[in-house]
Design a protein around this nucleic acid. Structure first.
Lengths: 197, 197
DNA sequence: CATTAAAAAGACATATTTGTTTGTTTTCAT
DNA sequence: ATGAAAACAAACAAATATGTCTTTTTAATG
């Protein structure tokens, strides 16, 4: 007999988790309220109760959560500048075989340009994400190297869905780049010291 | 007073062009037969006449055409190996501000994983594209540097849809990488010589 | 324990999308 | 010129999606 708050937060999380899975595994076009509810073992009544405007309420919340989660991971390593942040994320690619969160973010981002109502609610979050994840301000010039590494990061995520994707190869590719475009001096040392602590 | 063949090829091209625009500007989720026909100034009757299974017939044809077009551009420069091909494509990014073709390809590719019927018809083409565009075979190991540059290429395309996209910055970012990860010796010279001819 | 409000399910109307058919117009062939 | 086949338009049915409302269940409160 759970409390009311526990119950509602649980169903909200189930709905968010189901949406994230759909986005990551099937893509935005496959996201519908019926599918979300199927996957979450709930009904549209529940979904609409918590998110009255359907995806327009759900996706911003999900996106915010995903970015917050990513942000926390990054902050945990206490990066001192945007450069260190990008390298952190690249290192992240070496570990996990896929990162559904990143793919879900990319899906919402790419889909928003075809839906003004969605874009309106999501663009502020995407804007803030540039600060929160990359430590940059959206309207300040970006250093070329940072932008290049960001592109590499996003491209590597997409590659997971290529017909010829093999994770070990992706890892070697990232390592190849990291050897030639190494992170700031002392960064790796600081990172492993922080992980040990 | 056009011949029957002229008429039908023209409407087919109009439908394909409209679909490409929708994919590039609005994303896959915004693609519907009604929208395609609106944009092409045609009716669904025409669409279904030429493509009886709707998107399942239309998208493979479009994808094939887009890849053929990209492939021709690349072949024109007579690259001698996959490495030169990737660099060719990266150079391509420096010129045009956006390349709707590439985005359209990415959209179909990403959407196919949520639609088995579509994937079935598109995967063979995507497979062949790896050979035709990158000069690689899908089941042979990829050199790390090639994969890295491919990821950079795809990521750069996606970046066009970021809230902080500014083309000049993207150009500088690519140039930054090209300076540090330069193309094979003599490649740039051969390229400009070929362009002059 | 009874009442009230939140949470969830279910039902209904509407809009959109697709699959399919029928009808009209345009080109082709004799 | 006329019949046949094509290209295209238009209409209809079925499936899917959303927006909205009502009903049932569950937890909170006096």
């Amino acid at each position: 007999m759970a409390t009311q708050l526990q119950r509602s937060t649980q169903t909200q999380q189930q709905l968010l988790a189901a949406t994230e899975r759909l986005l990551a595994e099937q893509g935005y076009a496959a996201v519908s309220e019926a599918r979300i509810c199927d996957l979450a073992n709930l009904t549209r009544g529940a979904l609409r109760h918590h998110y009255p405007n359907g995806r327009y309420d759900l996706l911003p919340v999900l996106l915010e959560k995903l970015i917050a989660k990513q942000s926390e991971k990054i902050e945990a390593a206490q990066p001192q500048n945007p450069r260190e942040r990008v390298y952190l994320m690249l290192f992240g690619l070496l570990e996990a075989s896929i990162q559904p969160e990143t793919v879900a973010i990319l899906e919402v981002w790419m889909a928003a340009r075809g839906d003004a109502k969605l874009a309106e609610r999501i663009n502020p979050i995407m804007n803030s994400s540039i600060e929160r994840l990359f430590g940059m301000t959206p309207d300040t010039p970006i250093d070329p190297d940072l932008l290049a590494l960001r592109c590499l990061l996003h491209g590597a995520c997409m590659h997971c869905y290529s017909v010829d994707y093999r994770h070990e190869e992706l890892v070697r590719a990232i390592q190849w780049v990291l050897e030639r475009l190494p992170p700031p001096a002392g960064f790796v040392e600081r990172l492993s010291a922080a992980q040990a602590a």
